[in-house]
Nucleic acid binder design. Structure first.
Length: 739
DNA sequence: ATTCTTTAGTTTTTT
DNA sequence: ACTAAAGAAT
């Protein structure tokens, strides 16, 4: 046990050994958050304060859950008499799935209910709109999806939604129709998993009491990312914080809350503190990751935010290197410079996988990839399609879903004519109409159909019936294998010219099934029911879409958005595109507190770096097919000058005023040919001004000329004033002077 | 049923 | 500029 607590700093030790009371741990970036969480659990168990089955640990991602479990298993070896077995460790959605399977009857669901991922949900909504003859221009499916999820996350069923206008009233009706459709098809979307579980616990006292008594300690990771419903869910399980309820131990960092746009509610941290009368708030401020200069920069940036719980990171490591800042003429030059810098780092012995290239939006990866590719540097982009989201995998899963649950109309529609078997839109429309009148699923309506469409469809139904019969006694991997062949999917992709990779992925699906079987620890009884096991596998596929296509093993430079870099760390970090409009993103200006979220994002980006941090921006950048001229990001201004080393001489504020001369750090070769943007011919008469130039306006301050039109007395210029916005000004009226 | 054409959208993403 | 998805034509 002394082992367990050794090497913790005083704050970490305090957090780990807190008495059984509600606690909030404000864990700064790199402060050993996961360590505190795992050690706390291990300590509680080893000191006999709680049985493993009294522990519930909730995370947001499967990755985090796995890491928690792995580290706990290492800390609590079986020989000690305790182990991680019996604990409930998982994501909110994973745990809800588990609860709903266990109590499906009380939750009003069939045992083999299926889970819709976002794509499935969207398809289901589109199908619904079509069936109800709703104009999808007036009610865009995506918007409706967002609306429905927002209601569910607010804990509202259709009857409880307040609608003041006709439009919302109609959306609420559609919400109700959507719910009816899901119930009919025995499917559950992500938000429904949470809401259903919440309602189950709220309405069913015996079940609620059972879990309230069982879980003595509830630990929550990344608490700043919880949404309203998740917070209420926790409150319910912890019996509202009452005497005798579970202890809540929430770990989070309000400064790293970057998912407001998808419903995360930082306010939950304050609410938790108040509603649970949290006496123990512990700040973990010692950072074990980054050098001093990097931390100082991060602290300086985040200090500009007002709504904070307050925290200041410090380190015992030295100041380290200054932060390197580079200004490029164009996005291409920026990328080229980054690549040259990487080449020199690699020459000095740095491994590529210790280098990360971060950017605000995915579109920015293109230029970087292009330059890396030409230079022959191995790189890996995070954030593409994930395994279970691939087309061929989704098709295979749809067949499997039909075996487990023939009423799943989403799965039915997906593969009824894939591979094509002559079932066109007309036949399907007839089937949909019939299904509506019979109030039954598409699958079960087929026998009621007559005529030619009836016979082709009946063949499809027979195919699925055969699949179900022939796989009833097969082990899961063989079951999948059989379905791939009998469905014709394999044949289809074999005949496709580009089908090779898809075939490999299909084989990989068999491996995934085998792995799942191995990890599930299914006993003989479970093995005897392959179709129940199949339902579990399908839930797994929906809940865990698989890794992004990144081979962790290979030595490649890592490219990703700032969002997906959260939780990771690298020796060297390049943060590119630090320009107004890009980072902070222009859309954030109109959002409530949007700028503060952007700043938190910047804070996350900066704190990813261990040793060295590069910040760069470009005067001009191609975006949506147009060259844009941006000012440099205000976040750069927020870093104290003393921490920074300019690799190019700093221009007044932003850019444009400088010509190509005087670049202090010359790139090895290729050069950064001064690439002053060519103004369009029609805008030459601008009295000495040109597109891309930096100017000063009495009221709006400094800005950069983005475009121009007209001439003489009519000449107008469009100027990007950064925080003051983008404006069209008459040259004759506005007093502009070159900055 | 396949192939060509048009159109809209293009911040961030997990479950 | 580029893509994905819907629509129209063959």
């Amino acid at each position: 046990m002394s082992d367990l607590l050794a090497n913790l700093n005083p704050e970490q030790l305090q957090a780990v050994t807190l008495p059984p009371q509600h606690s909030l741990i404000l864990a700064g970036a790199g402060s050993g958050k996961t360590r505190v969480l795992t050690t706390r659990i291990a300590w509680l168990v080893q000191t006999g304060q709680v049985d493993p089955q009294g522990v519930l640990a909730v995370t947001f991602t499967n990755k985090a859950a796995k890491e928690l479990l792995a580290r706990l298993s290492a800390m609590l070896p079986l020989s000690f008499g305790h182990s991680a077995r019996g604990m409930w460790i998982g994501t909110f959605h994973g745990l809800c799935n588990r609860l709903l399977r266990a109590h499906h009857r009380d939750a009003g669901l069939p045992q083999l209910f299926q889970i819709l991922d976002s794509g499935d949900q969207l398809a289901a909504i589109k199908r619904l709109l079509k069936a109800l003859n709703v104009d999808d221009e007036k009610f865009p499916p995506r918007e409706l999806q967002h609306f429905i999820n927002a209601q569910k996350e607010a804990g509202l069923r259709p009857h409880a939604v307040e609608a003041w206008d006709d439009y919302t009233r109609r959306r609420v009706e559609l919400f109700a129709e959507y719910e009816a459709q899901c119930q009919r098809e025995s499917v559950v979307d992500f938000a429904e998993l949470l809401l259903r579980t919440y309602e189950l616990l709220e309405r069913n006292e015996p079940i609620r009491r059972h879990y309230q008594r069982r879980f003595r300690h509830i630990l929550v990771d990344e608490f700043q990312d919880t949404n309203r419903l998740q917070y209420r869910w926790l409150k319910l399980l912890a019996d509202d914080g009452r005497e005798g309820g579970a202890c809540l131990f929430c770990v989070g960092d309000d400064d790293q809350s970057i998912y407001r746009f998808r419903g995360a509610e930082v306010g939950n941290m304050r609410d938790f503190e108040r509603e649970f009368r949290v006496a123990n708030v512990i700040r973990l401020e010692q950072n074990y990751r980054s050098h001093g200069n990097i931390l100082d920069a991060a602290n300086a940036i985040i200090r500009h935010n007002t709504a904070r719980l307050g925290k200041n990171l410090w380190t015992e490591r030295g100041a380290g290197e200054p932060i390197r800042v580079f200004e490029a003429y164009a996005d291409m030059d920026e990328a080229r410079w980054i690549v040259e810098e990487i080449q020199s780092l690699v020459r000095d012995g740095m491994s590529r996988s210790d280098i990360a290239l971060l950017y605000r939006s995915n579109a920015q990866s293109r230029v970087l990839e292009h330059q890396l590719f030409s230079a022959g540097i191995a790189y890996r982009v995070y954030g593409g399609l994930r395994f279970f989201e691939r087309q061929e995998i989704k098709h295979a899963l749809a067949y499997l879903r039909l075996i487990a649950n023939p009423d799943d109309d989403t799965a039915f529609s997906r593969v009824v004519n894939f591979p094509t078997r002559g079932i066109g839109a007309r036949s399907l429309e007839a089937l949909q109409d019939a299904a509506r009148t019979w109030n039954a699923s598409l699958y079960s309506t087929v026998p009621h159909l007559s005529g030619k469409p009836g016979t082709v469809l009946a063949q499809f139904v027979r195919l699925v019936e055969d699949l179900r019969r022939d796989t009833a006694r097969l082990p899961l991997p063989e079951l999948v294998d059989h379905v791939l062949d009998a469905s014709g999917l394999r044949d289809f992709y074999r005949s496709e010219k580009e089908g090779q990779e898809r075939l490999e992925n299909l084989d990989e699906l068999i491996n995934a099934a085998a792995n799942f079987l191995g990890e599930s620890g299914a006993d003989a009884e479970a093995l005897a029911q392959p179709h129940a096991l199949l339902a579990d596998f399908l839930a797994h596929a929906s809940l865990e879409a698989g890794d992004h296509q990144a081979d962790a093993g290979s030595d490649a430079v890592q490219l990703m958005t700032v969002h997906s870099s959260k939780g990771l760390e690298f020796d060297v970090v390049f943060l590119s595109g630090l320009e107004e409009g890009l980072f902070p993103h222009e859309n954030s200006a109109v959002e409530n507190e949007g700028l503060e979220e952007e700043r938190r994002l910047m804070y996350v980006a900066v704190t990813r770096a261990r040793e060295r941090l590069y910040l760069s921006f470009a005067q001009s950048r191609m975006l949506h097919g147009q060259t844009r001229y941006n000012l440099r990001s205000r976040f750069l201004e927020e870093i104290p000058e003393g921490l920074v080393k300019w690799l190019s001489p700093p221009s007044p504020r932003g850019m444009g005023a400088r010509s190509g001369a005087g670049m202090r750090v010359e790139p090895a070769r290729g050069g950064l040919a001064p690439r002053v943007a060519q103004a369009p011919a029609r805008s030459q008469d601008l009295g000495g001004l040109r597109v891309g130039q930096l100017v000063t306006h009495a009221k709006f301050g400094q800005g950069v000329i983005v475009a121009a039109e007209g001439s003489g007395a009519d000449a107008r210029v469009q100027i990007n004033f950064g925080s003051a916005g983008v404006k069209w000004l008459m040259l004759a009226v506005a007093k502009l002077s070159p900055a």
